[in-house]
């Protein structure tokens, strides 16, 4: 369950109520930031960052570094897969 959509915080709409304007594929909506703010942080510090949006709330910040790491890991699969493929093919032949 739980449709969650990545969106980018493009502005703060209402600092007191922690409401931001978040853009998802060129569509903007007011989104509540209460779940991704801590007391020490002004909402403005989040502008430009990406959040996971669910039912009008930003439920978590999206970690760009982690996203990149995941994709890099997947890109490396190819060369690894080729190697393994050859090895396993070899094993099958021996059997």
């Amino acid at each position: 369950m739980c449709l969650g959509v990545p969106g980018q915080i493009i502005a703060i709409d209402d600092s007191d109520r922690s409401v931001a304007i978040v853009e998802v594929s060129s569509v903007r909506r007011r989104i509540n930031l209460a779940c991704v703010l801590n007391d020490a942080q002004p909402p403005e510090s989040l502008v430009g960052g990406w959040v996971l949006v669910h039912v009008g709330f930003a439920m978590n910040l999206i970690d760009a570094d982690e996203a990149r790491k995941t994709l890099e890991l997947l890109s490396e699969l190819q060369s690894f897969a080729d190697e393994q493929g050859m090895q396993e093919a070899g094993i099958d032949e021996i059997r």
């Binding site: 449709l3 959509v5 853009e23 060129s26 569509v27």
Partner: peptide
């Protein structure tokens, strides 16, 4: 599909 239409679709499922 235009980005704006796609955005509406993604947000509303």
């Amino acid at each position: 599909v235009k980005p704006e239409v796609r955005g509406v679709c993604e947000i509303l499922g």
